[in-house]
Amino acid sequence: MLNIASFIELMGAFVLFFAILQTASHRVDFSIKVYSIQSLFLSITIFVMGIHSNNGELYLSSFLTFAIKVVAIPFFLNKVTRRISIREKIIPYINMTNSVLITGAITIFAFFITKGDFASHEFIARRVFPTALAVILIGVFIMIARKKAIIQIIGFLTLDNGIILAATSITKGLPLVVDIGVFFDVFIGAIMAGVLIYRIRTSFDSLDTSKMSNLKE
């Protein structure tokens, strides 16, 4: 009953669920928590894929996901939020109810366009790719629909999780060097974004990116 492909799909589905929960979140600290749990499920997914395809590099990739995305980045983001004391709520362009509805539509769309014989023989688990696609689109949607810079970073990180999920599901893992490079990239990106947030905060007294349009004058 419980074959390994199903289990991979199950874990992938949890990654997607936490991406949807991300759009419904009202608070910054909750968003960070959701991101870290999502990354945890991502690392489990990659680990199980490693078991399935007997690929040692995937174990390392899984471990790196855990170390960087579950522990380091949330820790760092929490530190930034505490430092600049973001106590306010998340300010959306599109309100929560509609965001969730749009996210649902995105998910169904992602599954709809990839149905049928969409290069299915290449996949470890067939439904992981549409899941990953949905996560990518939701990440983009979060970046579009939220005003706060920190949530846009979280949207970007969600997007990155989706890309990694898609990559591992199609190619049975990237080459290790590329993998490490990507992780390093994301980590540095997150740190730089954090620093940038700090600068935005000090110069605009707010994290609202809609106020940045004042810069053009």
């Binding site: 949807i20 969730v100 649902g104 169904i108």
Partner: peptide, 19 residues
């Protein structure tokens, strides 16, 4: 909002089953 999240999740669940 909370219930809406549940509603969307259940719709996704049903539609993905049907597709």
């Amino acid at each position: 909002d909370f219930l809406m999240l549940g509603f969307v999740l259940s719709i996704i669940s049903l539609v993905l089953y049907s597709i």
